[in-house]
Structures are given as C-alpha cells and as structure tokens.
Design a protein around this nucleic acid. Sequence first.
RNA 1: GGGCGAUUAGCUCAGUCGGUUAGAGCGCAUGCCUCACAUGCAUGAGGUCAGAGGUUCGAGUCCUCUAUCGCCCACCA
Length: 885
Amino acid sequence: MPELPPRYNPLDVEEPLLAQWNDAGLFHAEPDPKRAPYTIVIPPPNITGILHMGHALNNTIQDILIRFKRMQGFNALWVPGTDHAGIATQNVVEKSLAKEGKRRQDLGREAFLQRVWQWREQYGSTIINQLKRLGASCDWQRTRFTMDDGLSQAVTEVFLRLYNAGLVYRGNYIINWCPRCQTALADEEAPRKETHGKLYHFRYPLSDTPDRSIVVATTRPETMLGDTAVAVHPKDPRYISLIGKTVRLPLVGRELPIIADEAVDPEFGTGAVKVTPAHDPVDFQLGKKHGLEFINVMTDDGRMTNVPQPYAGLDRFVCRKRVLEDLERQELLENTTEHLHNVGHCYRCDTVVEPRLSLQWFVRMKPLAEPAIQAVKDGTITFIPPRWTKVYLNWMENIQDWCISRQIWWGHRIPVWYCDACLKEAEAAPDPRRGIIVSTTAPERCPACGAAALRQDEDVLDTWFSSWLWPFSTLGWPNNTEELRYFYPTTTLVTAPEIIFFWVARMIMAGYVCLGKPPFTTVYIHGTVRDLTGRKMSKSLGNIIDPLEIIRQFGADALRYTLVTSTAVGTDVFISDEKFVVGRNFANKLWNAARFILQAAPEAAAGAPPAEQCSVFDRWILQELDTAIRDTTAALERCHFDEAASRAYEFLWHQFCDWYIEFVKPSIASTPSSQHVLKHVLEQALRLLHPVMPFISEALWQQLQPINSPRFLMVAPWPVPRGERHEEASRQVGWVIQVITAIRSVRAEFRVPAAARVDVTLSTQATPHAAAWQPLAEQLTRLAGVKTLHVGPATGSARGSVPILFDGGSGLIHLGDAIDIEQARQVKQRELAEELQPRLAAVEARLGNEAFTKSAPPEIVQQEREKQATLTQRIATLESYLHAL
RNA sequence: GGGCGAUUAGCUCAGUCGGUUAGAGCGCAUGCCUCACAUGCAUGAGGUCAGAGGUUCGAGUCCUCUAUCGCCCACCA
C-alpha cells in the first residue's frame, strides 16, 4: 500500500488514469445484441475551436450520462468528432495566408484546399485532446470528421435524394450576403444588432407634374439606384390619388410606378416607401407580387454596378455619401432623422450584411418539418427542460426554406454539374431542371445531350448540411452497417439552446427523411456559461475563464463538480474561478478520508458483513448509504445532475466523514465490522460519485481494491440499495446526533472552553435499552465533551445548568458557576416566547379548525397532533426550568 | 410587435404531489492547528419567498393583475 500524501494533487493522478482507461479499451463499444445500447453523439466542436467553459459543461454532462449508463450495464457508446466549420476554418486559413501577403485566389481552389487540409492535420485535433483531458469517455476509435469520406458520401446522398424528391431546388431569392466573406448567409448566421443609424427622406418628383413630389424614407440611400417602384398603403388618403401615376427616379431618371400594397405601414415615416426588389426582402415580395423589375446594383464585394456612371464601381458606403450629396445639391433631400434599427451582421466577420438577390440552392422545409413536429408533439422526442418544446414547435410551424449554398471553397462541394448547352435551351423553354445534373459521382457527359463539357457548381454546402446528418452519418449511413442498426436511434442529445434551430431541429428532420426514425429520444438543453455579472464569456469582454487553466490549478474533477453543481436543469451557469475551490476541497476531503481508512483498516476487505455482526453505527451508515444510492440514482435518471452531485457530496462529507468516521474512530482497531463497513461504504459511495468526478473516484477505488469487482471503477456495476431495514439503528443514532449537537450548541453559546468537560443529566422516554446504551453514551462523552452522564429525572439545582430539548426528551447541562444565570434566563425565555409558544399556538389553531381535521389527509393531522404533544412537553420543561431558577 | 422565462439569505442557486420550523454552497461572526484533512472541525447570525388580489382547512408552490430583469423570434422602409 503506497503512502498517500496529506494533500491531494490531481495532476499526479488524472493523466495516468486516462492512459490506464485507454489501454484497457474501456472507451470502446461494439454492437452486442445481448446488451441494451445507450448512445450519445457529441455536438461536434469546430476544428478551429479550443475548449471553453461551454464545451466543458456540455461534455461534462454527456460524460456523466455515459458513465452512469455504462455502470448500469448498458452498452454505452459516445461518438466523438469534429465539424469542418466552413466559414470559420476558411477564415483562419485565409488569415494565415494574409500574413504571407496572399489571398486564396492567388493559390487557386485546389492549392487552397490543400492548405486547409494541412491546417486541419496540424491543429484540427486540438479540441479532441482537450476533451480527453476533461475525462470525456468517448469511443475515440470512432472519432469522425464531417469531411471524412463516409460522411461526405452521406451529404451527397442526401442532396441527391432530396433533389429527386423535389425538396432541393435552385432559385432566386433575397439572401443575406456578406461582401467581405463573399458568401450567402442563413438568417441565423446574420444576427441583427441594434444600430444607431439615420433615416433619410427623399423627394421623388412626379413624372407628369415635376413640381409635385412624393417623399420616401430609407436607411440605405445607395439602394435608391435600384428602385423600381414606390409603394403606398391602398387606403392612405394622402396618396390615394397618386396610385397608378409614376415618379421620375432622381439621379437615374427611370420612371417608377406608384403601387398600392397592404404591406406598407401608413404610420411609419412618410407612409410611402421606395421599392428595391433586388436588395430588400420585403421589396422582393412586393416586386414578385406586382411584377416589378429586379435590378441588382451591387457586386459580390459590395460595389455598385448597373448604375449611372458616377456611381459605378463605388463601394456601397462611399456611394451612400455620394448619393446623399447629389440629392442634397438637387434639393431632393428633405430631411434626416436619427433612427434606431436592427442591422444584420455577419456572424463571422461582423461586416454589415447586404440583402441581395442571388441564385442559390434551397431545401423546401415544410414537408420535412411535418414528421419532426409530430414527433415532438406525440412525445417520441422530449425536451428537458420541457419549456423548449414550445420554442421548438413555434419555430418549426413557421419554418422558412433553407438556403444551403455557400460561396466559399472549404466544405462539401455541391454535387451538381451544369451542361451549358442544355441550360441555354432551358432559357427558351423554361424548365428548371434542364441542364442540371445532380449526381453522387462526377458525370462524364450530359445525359440529355451527350456533351462532355460539363462544369460543377462552384459553391459548397452550408456546414449544417453535414451536421444535420451527424447522428447517423457517424454510424455509417448511407451504408446499412451493424453499428447503425444497433446504436441508432441514439438516446440523449445534450446541447445548448442557441443551436436548437441550427442543428437540433434539422437533425430531427434529417432522421425522419433519411431513416424514418428520430435521431434521439431526449434532448437535454443546458444553460449558457456566464460570469458572475451574467455576461456571456467572450474574448472581447476579457471575462474568459479557461477550463484548461482550471484543470491545471484544481483538477478536472473540481472543474466538473463545480460546473455541474452550479447549474440546475435549464438555468444558466454563473462561474468565477473561486468557485472551483469547492470542487477541489471536496476532492481533498475524500482523499483524506480514504487515506485515513486505508491506514486504519489496512487489511479489511471492502464488503459489508452480515447485519447481525454490525454495530449500531455500522447499521446506521448502511441505511444512510441506501438512501443516498436511491436519491442519487433517481436524480441522474431525471437528468438532475446538480442534485446527484450534491447528494453524493452531502452523503460522503456530512454523513460519512462528519459522523460515521468520527463515531467509529476510537474503536476501529478492535471492531472488524467497522473496518469492513468503512471500506464498503466508501467504495460504494465512490461509485455514486464516479460519473461526476471520475478521476479521484477511480484512483481511490483502486486503492480500496474491492473484492469480486472489476479492476476499474469505470466499468464497475452501479450500486443498488441493500434494502435492509435498520430503523432502530437509525432512530438511536439520530437521537445521539441530536443530543451531541444540542450539547455542543450550549457549550458554544455559553463559551465553555473546548477542553472543559461538563456534567449532563438526560431525561428521556426514548432511553435506549441497556445493551444499546453503552456505545451511544460513549459518543456523547467523546464528541460532546461530557464528563459524567446521568440518566433520569433532572436532579440538582437549575442554577448553574442550561436545559436542552430534543425529540423525545430533555436534559440539563451542568456548568456550575461558569454560566451567567441572567443570560441563560434570557435565552430560554426568548426561546419560549418567540419560538415554542407561537408554534404551539399555530398548531392548536390548525387542530381547532374543523375544516382542517376533516379534509386534510389523516397522516397530516396525525403529524400535527404529534407536534402538539412535543411542543407542549418542551414548553412545560422550559417553564419548570425557568421557574426553578 | 409576438413568444418564452425569471424574481427565495450579502452573493449564486435548490425547493418533486399545495402539508413539520423554507434548504445548500460561498461569504460573514465566534471558538478550535483534536494524532485523515486548516483545501480542516465545531457553533452561530442572516428570509415579509418582488408587490397586490384570488382559490384552499392550508400557498414559496395553483390562478389573475402589477413592477422589474433576461432570452428568443419578427420585413417597419
């Protein structure tokens, strides 16, 4: 038995255990029809990612579940992997290129992609290694990457299937365009930020009577160059006479019709709105409805085009100034007001996005959403906490088509080839599919015309188009693998609320459309990690706490414990680095408890002896252990991880260490039963703790070397209650604890020196019979500093004594001249008047109320009667004491 | 503008079916270096459960309103 140092150093323990677990193959799972599967797929972190607190929380929760289920005997598989993160990764590599003074265009597509792959080889596993350090018990042999061959095959397969089913189409649409990244962005990728802007009012002169005009307002003056109408509300009396007339667009000279549409809000601005169908989502709808011209006035990189000479080629913001100046000069700028509005920004580079007309690929979402809505409504898939159900359904029922093409290079290239000859013909006789070849492999010639001159679509797919297949593409789909058949559907998905729409909803849709089955049955949504002032952790705020630094300082167990106990189901997690001290201290406490036990009972085996050989304290702690097992298990089953961790903590620290170890300490050497029980209870409790604190629990458990157990706690069976009833032991030990606490309390209140012994008289109906009394009395003597103990009616003078009250009895602590009589009188009088008497009054009022005694459940009424009796007796005891003073 | 949620000790949060004296951790106060642990031990102070009304024998818990604070969604140019 190696000597354990008095202070626990997690760094000595954690890394070697990772190697042991790995070498023993404990992370790996294989299909096994004899056992029930339990599967989790990791939310794949970006390959550009480094571990932050959000990951730490997310993966701790998953690891708790997977370790718990593994110990329960499930064939537990946790599939890890990473996401290629199209835009983010491309940005990183472009930045490193920029340091060499190059742009990706200088390299060309092939060479650039090679660079990205190189980058991925070098840095792409960083986060995986960090997850390992956290203790995540993933099946690392099954680590997947969204750009792996198999997963890429799944992507093209789905694209083809959806295209053939008419669910993928190509179309013109107003999309969010990032002029810097030069790519389309999904709505979710262009978060709106409240921005102080200006609202400019322009006069557009009427064509027939140029001295009259209509005033429109805009926040983006440069778009006026692409205006093709002015819209007003059909019932607006100010404009009703103008509907159908035309205005002449300043600076351009185009004639624009004045149209009427309900979508115009007469209350806002001037009630007249300029319509730019190619550069605004609302205007786009108006344009389609009213058959307006669509004029695209901007290039990919945000410069003006298709506009009169002085503006052509100008950057959009330069052009804005120029347009304003020119309108001002022509006295057409009516006025300018301050305006607070929401402007979309690129989620990657924060550039102001430009709504822009563009030819993109889309997925028709309504048909996909139907089974996914149904599954949540009928409970096939449940959210924890349940309130996310509403959020999910609300979004799904209003779902919009999904723009899946991205104008970047890093990602799954769209499996579409174009035959230009056929495309040309399609223009003459409109056919949306002519000239378009969708295929999982590169076609050699056009199936329609036989031409060999085909070109592949330049764009790649949205990153989420591979992530939404993750629960089954990682298991081998579209091949019908053994893994897929056995481990799918997965069980629990653990993720953050931000990606319910991005990812969770889409996975559910993909599960149904590809396999006809849900991808998982439970979705656990945890909170966001914030600092103590409630702000999200972010680099720009400088409030990041680095999980790896916490691991270095306090250990992975402390990190995990503190994270998990800081979050109730569904609430955000507020963290400061001092909080991790709690986890560290707990680990140290355990370490020392184990150290003590190993040294006090070196030879004993870790197994509980038969009840009849156990002392009253042994039986008591075994009973408490049973309760702790039940509570912890129930909490884990309900995904109440904080409760599970706190319950194990409470048991180990405040029941096992504070009381049981103290009770048995003096007699360990001569009491074999206690030696066994000490080891047994610790061993069992370490199992309860293992999912939350895998390292220290494993390390200590191995030191205990339980008999008839596997070598590793990680695969040891989850504890089950013994189910013995030790009610008498529970009652007696509960009584001793109460009396000890009461005596200590009086000692502290009356400042009895720690070393001083006191005489105590106890008067109790609950006096245990003689055989049981001896060990209990010894504890009173030792743990409460009692010198002599008399049992029987209170004797001696009330002077010099302080009464204590406990369930089923009372006592007197004789302190002699050491106490201040007046103080004692005041304390006890206050207790009587402010606590006991009001409580008795309340109880008696309740019992005097017929409505209560008749309609409350009998056990509640009974409880009240018992309370009444206890209080009456306590009051009598105190009164007689005060009287005797 | 719509939807969701929160408000309990100085701080961060639990509180299951409405039922005993509303709990924990941290912090604070007091006393202890007691031979596992000072990253420890013991004891204690601290609460009108945001406010008002209602249902009930009984409300932190259920209902209504008010206040404050979050989050999500939305095309107000």
